[in-house]
């Protein structure tokens, strides 16, 4: 099994929900997610943000769906860090 440990995403989002609410909603997707958001560019109605999400086993589909639920649009996956895990059970 391969676990996603860290992803860096480039996201276009509306100003609302704001950066704090946006990050909090993403952090709520998992029980141990650490979300780091940086606003890269600001427009009249939108902002481009870089999201760095770290966790033990990141569920990318849930992250993507939460981004869409909040009106955001995923532009690119800029970095990923994955780790294989041998299932001995």
């Amino acid at each position: 099994m391969v676990l996603v440990k860290r992803i860096v995403l480039d996201v276009l989002k509306p100003h609302q929900p704001n950066a704090l609410e946006f990050s909090q909603a993403l952090a709520r997707v998992g029980s141990d997610y650490l979300v780091h958001l940086t606003v890269l560019e600001m427009d009249e109605n939108t902002e481009t943000v870089e999201l760095v999400i770290t966790g033990n086993a990141i569920n990318f589909e849930d992250i993507q769906s939460t981004i869409s639920d909040m009106g955001g649009s995923l532009h690119s996956i800029d970095e990923v860090e994955v780790q294989s895990e041998t299932n001995n059970g």
Partner: peptide, 16 residues
């Protein structure tokens, strides 16, 4: 409509 134009996407299923 203004937001959808700026985002270039359909936001009907989003919180907006």
């Amino acid at each position: 409509g203004i937001l959808e134009e700026a985002m270039i996407s359909d936001l009907h299923e989003s919180a907006h």
